[in-house]
């Protein structure tokens, strides 16, 4: 599937991006292209500037140099769900939609994330995973050309996270927006993305296209090595084969 996407007419094109906080240059000459419908995962140590890059792409923050070409209004899912506690779920999902047919569109989007029977419920009655699903519905109902996800599953428990991966995979395959998923979870990146980027020192330091030929296990070990984390020993007695994160 990933090979069918050729980055000729990119949805996102970033050239020499610079972003500073005061004296500190967090992003320093970063280049990035994301094709239409391509799913890109961005890995990197905590504090390396992933969120900063995503905020520049979403237009939330100004940039200090270079150029950013991105769809005018990408949809964003943050690490926290950011649901309006005073609005019902369907009102939350339809935030920003024209009033005409808003409820129907919200209902369809909520059904897609498995919450079609909770239209009039309050956000406070949701679990963490359900709230994040509503946030996902709110992003997808906009039919965005570009979807920006900033560690949206980091706060979820392992089992819920796996379920979310399956759901996201299915929804992205259906709606086909370009996706930039920021994560610090190597397994998550390998499981979802067409291409994995690694950010270091304010720029993209490493890139790996995932093809059906390469085994996920070898890609994972390659990425872990690149991140400076030794891959775990084979079949250890007491370690579960859980995800390996870079924190």
């Amino acid at each position: 599937m990933s090979l069918s996407v050729i980055p000729t007419k990119p949805a996102v094109l970033v050239r020499g991006l610079v972003r500073r906080y005061g004296e500190r240059t967090v992003i320093d000459g970063l280049d990035l292209a994301i094709a239409h419908g391509e799913f890109v995962a961005l890995l990197g140590e905590s504090g390396c500037g992933k969120t900063t890059l995503l905020r520049a792409l979403s237009g939330l923050d100004p940039i200090d140099g270079g150029s950013v070409k991105a769809p005018r209004r990408p949809a964003v899912v943050f690490q926290e769900h950011r649901l309006l506690p005073w609005d019902s779920l369907w009102r939350n999902v339809s935030l920003g939609l024209p009033a005409d047919g808003a409820r129907d569109r919200a209902a369809a989007a909520l059904a897609e994330v498995g919450l079609g029977d909770r239209l009039d419920d309050w956000p406070r009655n949701l679990s963490g995973g359900q709230a994040q699903r509503v946030a996902l519905a709110r992003a997808l109902v906009q039919q965005p050309e570009l979807l920006l996800l900033d560690e949206p599953f980091a706060a979820l428990d392992a089992l819920t996270r796996l379920r979310m991966h399956a759901l996201v995979k299915e929804l992205i395959a259906r709606h086909r927006p370009g996706v930039l998923l920021v994560t610090h979870d190597v397994d998550e990146a390998v499981a979802l993305a067409d291409r994995v980027l690694l950010m270091r020192d304010g720029a993209i330091a490493y890139e790996r296209r995932l093809s059906s030929a390469a085994s996920p296990q070898s890609v994972r070990e390659e990425l872990l090595a690149e991140l400076g984390v030794a891959p775990p020993p084979r079949a250890p007695a007491f370690t579960s084969p859980s995800s390996h994160s870079v924190v």
């Binding site: 979403s58 939330l60 943050f78 950011r82 309006l84 935030l95």
Partner: peptide, 12 residues
């Protein structure tokens, strides 16, 4: 302020 940011992202 995070909800105000959301408002900008949603284009309100």
């Amino acid at each position: 302020p995070k909800l105000l940011e959301l408002a900008r992202v949603q284009g309100l």
